[in-house]
Amino acid sequence: METEFTPYWSLLGGVLIGLAATLLMALHGRIAGMTGILSGVLPPPATDWQWRAAFLAGAIVAPMVFVAAGGTIEFAVPVNTLPLIFGGFIVGIGVYFGSGCTSGHGVCGMARLSPRSIAATLVFMLAAFITVYVSRHVIGV
């Protein structure tokens, strides 16, 4: 399935992600990592679960409002249910043991030159490139 190359929208979106990361550090002193923020509201919740829940609610509501206001967000899942769920499960295990994902390691950790985050980002990006190559061009899903 082809998708349109969207350099301007993607750059704008990236700058907004960076702005949110900067604001979360300036106001709350926290890394804007989705893994850490989400983990803190799952049972047993962290003592400071309220700001985490508020952040998650904002992250979910914003695209909803954008679409309700007439905006368009492209969305397609070119994956069947079983691999989607299997993928979700191992993403959950992986980000727990890896202590972060694209936002926490890839953006916030890389931005402050954390050696752990640089290593994690190289590993998960490489793993994703290899996985897509194997699934699409070797196995041929």
């Binding site: 191992i90 295990i93 727990y96 043991f97 998960f124 994703a128 996985t131 699934s135």
Partner: peptide
């Protein structure tokens, strides 16, 4: 963990 995450992300 990061390798597992990358595989799941790629799937």
């Amino acid at each position: 963990g990061s390798a597992l995450f990358g595989i799941g992300w790629g799937i």
